[in-house]
């Protein structure tokens, strides 16, 4: 489904080239739950960003199905992020001035055409699924950290994505809330959604079907 071959990525810090990913190769299969684990600074978040097309690699190739994503135009990558890929971040990242429902519907608000009723119903359904239908009109500032993360997951669900990329989704949450979020991710994975998750937590990493260990930019 998603295949990264010999990916390399460098960052420039203090005029020095710092290699973050060194010829990394990894495959993500349909409906798979993969965790990426490693120490801080090992390159796991960069790998997730490359896989989710948010960061272009300096070398190597990234394939999604039959498409070579490394060669895709910006426009095509945007379209892919609109439809097939979803990303949730450690700090949930909702627009604070939009309501829960509006944040969930963000993927459909890209033009002056009003959001369709069907999309609205689907968004409410997704909020229902993450247990937040009754808070659809609230602003993110009035929600707990766990609830905000669930809104971010609902936003990923509403697009009917094929792959969900999660960067430390439980990193800022307490244990109980973190477990609920992990339970939700497992549930979604059971429904056929592929999940690629970066985590520090070995317990959560074991909940994934497969773990990829990365150290100093190399998969071990």
């Amino acid at each position: 489904m998603l295949s990264a071959q010999n990916i390399s990525k460098n960052f420039i810090t203090d005029n020095k080239v710092v290699p973050v990913l060194k010829n990394v190769s990894v495959d993500i299969h349909d409906g798979e739950f993969v965790s990426i684990v490693g120490r801080s600074g090992s390159g796991k978040t960069t790998l997730l960003n490359v896989l989710s097309t948010l960061v272009r690699p300096d070398g190597g190739e990234l394939h999604y199905g039959t498409e070579n994503l490394s060669a895709l135009s910006e426009k095509r990558l945007n379209r892919l992020r609109q439809s097939d890929f979803s990303v949730i971040f450690q700090f949930h990242h909702l627009l604070p001035y939009l309501t829960v429902l509006e944040n969930t519907l963000l993927p459909f608000m890209q033009s002056v055409r009003p959001v369709k009723k069907a999309a609205m119903e689907k968004a409410l359904g997704c909020l229902e699924r993450v247990g937040l239908a009754d808070k659809a009109d609230r602003l993110p500032g009035n929600l707990s950290g766990g609830e905000q993360q669930r809104v971010a997951i609902a936003r990923a669900l509403v697009k009917s994505s094929k792959v969900l990329f999660a960067d430390e989704p439980t990193g800022s949450l307490d244990k109980g809330t973190g477990e609920k979020i992990m339970g939700l991710l497992s549930e979604l994975n059971n429904d056929g959604l592929a999940v690629v998750m970066v985590t520090h937590d070995p317990v959560y990493a074991k909940m994934a079907g497969r773990s990829v260990h990365i150290e100093d930019g190399v998969i071990v």
């Binding site: 910006e74 426009k75 945007n78 992020r81 609109q82 990242h93 909702l94 963000l106 993927p107």
Partner: peptide, 16 residues
Amino acid sequence: KKDIGILRSLGYGKPQ
């Protein structure tokens, strides 16, 4: 910039 990052991750292009 954070808002821009969220929007770009959701597939919003430069024109949007």
